[in-house]
Amino acid sequence: MSADKTQPLWGMVIDLDRCTGCQACVVACKQENNVPFSSREEAAYGREISWIRVMAVTEGEFPKVKIRYMPLLCQQCDAPPCTRVCPTRATYKNPQGIVGQIYPRCIGCRYCANACPYQVKYFNWYNWSHFRWPAEMRESLNPDVSLRPKGVIEKCTFCHHRLQHAREQAAIEGRPVESTDFVPACVSSCPARAMVFGDLRDPESTVHKLAASPRAFRMLEDLGTEPKVVYLKEGEWNATTGG
């Protein structure tokens, strides 16, 4: 667990029973974080950037086939393998347990991307600037998030800029930041309410309660990365019975 126990420990719970794989979170994330566009050709090169993506896992064969959807984002590990290999401390875990990426420090060596067992760190191959962004969409660029330069690694930050605003607002109102003060863009866009966000350390928070559910599991948890994204297992579903 994070060193500073007085700070909230931000975490997310994703209920796979509720997730319909609609990709709203993917779109919301790209819009919120100025994630550059991609084409079919670039995706074929493995250059597509998507801080959150919905993995479709197919099981069985026709006619007994089923697809499980699993939104995959940075797991915000409490023991992140990526930060240990960074030669410049461009990626590090901050006092709130959020794994950050400081783009001006990043030298693009991609050690972290290779160390990440979840493959959620993306290398930026293109020099996106305000002027190269499609003119129709320039006005919708989020000023709280930078356009990453070419040759750096980028990743999900749990919408850290939203946390900053929440913290600022809480400080002006003279109170500590609470579990309900902010949610990342993906969580706020989820129509099925499959994603819940909050302070894992607060025993009253929904995430804390859900994370204690018997359905809860963390992805590749045997690696000891201690992810702060918790998944709730799907109930058993059988294609032959349909229920």
Partner: peptide, 8 residues
């Protein structure tokens, strides 16, 4: 003094 407090 957190890097992320100022670097976006």
């Amino acid at each position: 003094l957190d890097c992320m407090a100022c670097h976006r």
